[in-house]
Structure formats: structure tokens, C-alpha cells
């Protein structure tokens, strides 16, 4: 029963997954294709970057030379593309099984069968996790494959490990959004609040990087922990980030299950 619903949820996610994958593959591929140009002009590029404040550079992931694969990836993907893609995909996917389906009446139809609320949501959560994993892999694959084709020395396993961190970040967003959906039963409110929180955290992270005396603000945002630079450049797995994102994801999804099982489904 859960497997059947899982397959249906995957089917419903296929357009989001396809178009997001096209975007990340294309963007990642184009960025990776430019990597040799950055390598060839490393000195000139670094001279140019010196005109910007260090804090501003750090806010956007540029904490070293753009020629370093980790800094390169963190700047163009980890701090820019993935937060946007993960947020959009997670919000679309996580507001659907409860909030959107209650609003449209599909939850009533599905729950009018022996399918339990727990199984319905568990199937949806599993499909969210899988789609986000595919998107994280596609994001890394676009950079990695094109990078290799143009001669970049990208380490496959370190990039794969970066995909795991990115995936867990997406799962954390989905978990919290799922909980918001279960509490509000409104796709608009849940999606809006989740997006608002993410934008706020992004801004806090930028301010924290630019203003040293406000660095503590960064502790309240998820983006401080979405770090892949050291992982790719030095092979250091950010276990704290992994643990934090995994905990938030599991807690969010678990709480949404608990809330959904007790919730009046008021269309």
C-alpha cells in the first residue's frame, strides 16, 4: 500500500524533478566548462577579486582561490544554485502531500480507503527524499562530468560526499516545510513561511559574513552549515552539518507525521 502510494508520489514529482534536473545539469555544466578559463587566468582573477571586501566574498562562498575546486564549487553551486533549487523543490514537494492535497480534496479520496495517514505521509516523505537525492546528484554530476571533460581535476568521491551534504540540506528544508504544511493545512501559508525563513536565514548569513561584530547572527541560519569547500579541497567531511541537517529533517518529518495523524482535515 505504501509502495503503491510511493510510486504515485514519484510520478507526481516527475515534472519538478525533470525540469529542476535540466536546470542544475545545464547550469553546472556551463559553470564547469568555464573552470579551465579560470585556471588559465588565476592571477588576473585574484587581483580582480581583491577589490571586493573579504566579508562579501565569504558571504558568497569565496573563501579562497576560485581555482580551488572546493571554492569554485562552493561559490557557484553550494552558495548560489543549490540553495535556490533545494528550497524550490523541497517547498513544492513537501507542501503537496498534506497541505495541497487536503485543500484540493485528494487527501479525502486517498484516506477514504484503508490507507492510513501514516502510510500516506511516509510514502510522500520517501519520494521527497529520493527526488532531492536525484537533484543533488544531478547538480554534482553536471559539474563533475563537464569538468572532467574539460580537464578539471575534480575528485569524484569528494564531490559525491558534497552531494550528500547538499541532499541533507534539502531534506532539512523539506522536513520543516512538511511540518508547516501539517500545522497550517495551507500550501500558500506553509510555502510562504518556509521561503520567508530561508530568505531571512540567507540574509542573516550574508550580514554575519560582512559585519564581523554581527557574526553571531550566522549561527541562526542553515547556510552557515551548508559548507562543502573543505570537503572538496581537503577531504574533511563536515559531520556537524551532516548531523544537524539530518536531525532537522528527521525531526521535521517525524513531527509532521505526528501532527498529521491527529489533525482534523478541514478542506
Amino acid at each position: 500500500m505504501t509502495g503503491l502510494t510511493f510510486r504515485l508520489e514519484l510520478r507526481r514529482s516527475r515534472m519538478v524533478a525533470f525540469w529542476m534536473a535540466v536546470i542544475v545539469l545545464a547550469y553546472g555544466g556551463i559553470i564547469a566548462a568555464m573552470y579551465p578559463i579560470l585556471q588559465e587566468n588565476a592571477t588576473a582573477l585574484e587581483d580582480y577579486m581583491k577589490i571586493f571586501p573579504e566579508g562579501l566574498m565569504a558571504a558568497f562562498g569565496m573563501t579562497g582561490s576560485l581555482v580551488d575546486p572546493g571554492v569554485f564549487f562552493g561559490t557557484y553551486i553550494g552558495s548560489m544554485l543549490w540553495p535556490v533549487v533545494a528550497a524550490i523543490a523541497a517547498i513544492i514537494l513537501a507542501t503537496r502531500p498534506i497541505a495541497s492535497d487536503v485543500e484540493r480534496g485528494w487527501a479525502d479520496v486517498a484516506l477514504g480507503t484503508p490507507l492510513t495517514r501514516g502510510h500516506l505521509l511516509a510514502a510522500a516523505i520517501a519520494s521527497q527524499a529520493l527526488v532531492l537525492a536525484l537533484l543533488a546528484l544531478a547538480t554534482v554530476a553536471g559539474v563533475l562530468v563537464v569538468g572532467r571533460l574539460v580537464g578539471a581535476d575534480f575528485d569524484v568521491w569528494r564531490f559525491a560526499a558534497a552531494a550528500v551534504v547538499m541532499w541533507l540540506f534539502g531534506c532539512a528544508v523539506a522536513g520543516v516545510t512538511s511540518l508547516l504544511g501539517a500545522v497550517t493545512l495551507s500550501r500558500g501559508i506553509a510555502g510562504g513561511v518556509a521561503a520567508g525563513i530561508l530568505i531571512l536565514m540567507y540574509l542573516l548569513n550574508v550580514v554575519a559574513q560582512i559585519q564581523v561584530e554581527l557574526a553571531w547572527l550566522g549561527d541562526f541560519g542553515a547556510f552557515k552549515y551548508l559548507v562543502t569547500t573543505e570537503l572538496i579541497d581537503a577531504g574533511v567531511m563536515p559531520w556537524a552539518s551532516v548531523g544537524l541537517f539530518a536531525t532537522v529533517a528527521i525531526a521535521g518529518w517525524g513531527a509532521s507525521l505526528a501532527v498529521f495523524r491527529r489533525r482534523d482535515l478541514l478542506a
Binding site: 492535497d101 484540493r104 480534496g105 485528494w106 479525502d108 479520496v109 484516506l111 477514504g112 480507503t113 484503508p114 490507507l115
Partner: peptide
Amino acid sequence: HRRLACLGSDPGY
């Protein structure tokens, strides 16, 4: 729900 079948008003297929 193993023992009943139902049809809600305006089902949201």
C-alpha cells in the same frame, strides 16, 4: 475503511 467504500462531495481527483 476496509469495510466501507465512500464518495465525498466534490472529490479532488
